[in-house]
Design a binder for these strands. Structure first.
Length: 120
DNA sequence: TAGGTGACGCGGT
DNA sequence: CACCGCGCCACCT
C-alpha cells in the first residue's frame, strides 16, 4: 500500500472550484488517522518537487489555508483559490459549507477500486 | 534507539 | 471567535 501514491491520486481528483481537507484526503486514502502525513507528503514529496498537483485546494478542517510558504509567496495559495472562484476571507479561511468537496459513497468506492487496480 | 517535528483533528474552555 | 491540550504517526536527526 503506497501511501503517497494514494494521496497523489485523490488530490488529483479534487474538483476545480472546491476545497478538500487533509483529514478528508486521509479518509479517502483509507488512512483516517494520517491527516498529518497528508500535509507532510504535499510539502515534502510533491509541491517542492514541482509537481502539478492541485495542492492549493487542500486546507485544514477549519477551512484555513496553510501557513507554510510552500507555494512561494504568503498569499500564493489564496490567489490560486480565488482564480477558480473560491472565496478566501481576511483570516485566510475558506467557507467549507460553500466550497467544500462533498464526497459521496461512490467516491470512496471508486478510489478504493482504483487503489486496488493500481496496486497502491 | 529515543526523541523531536509538523501544510492535522477534535474536544474543551 | 481564539487558544490550549492531547492524540496521532511517518520522517527525520
Amino acid at each position: 500500500m503506497d501511501f503517497y501514491k494514494r494521496i497523489e491520486l485523490v488530490v488529483n481528483h479534487i474538483p476545480y472550484g472546491t476545497a478538500a481537507t487533509y483529514g478528508q484526503i486521509a479518509l479517502l486514502c483509507g488512512m483516517p488517522k494520517n491527516a498529518r502525513q497528508v500535509g507532510y507528503a504535499l510539502g515534502h514529496r510533491y509541491e517542492v518537487s514541482g509537481s502539478k498537483l492541485p495542492a492549493h485546494r487542500v486546507v485544514n478542517a477549519q477551512g484555513r489555508l496553510s501557513g507554510a510558504m510552500s507555494f512561494g509567496a504568503w498569499d500564493t495559495q489564496k490567489k490560486l483559490l480565488e482564480a477558480e472562484g473560491i472565496e478566501v476571507d481576511e483570516g485566510m479561511r475558506v467557507d467549507l459549507k460553500r466550497f467544500g468537496w462533498r464526497n459521496t459513497l461512490d467516491d470512496a468506492l471508486w478510489f478504493r477500486a482504483s487503489f486496488e487496480k493500481y496496486g497502491i
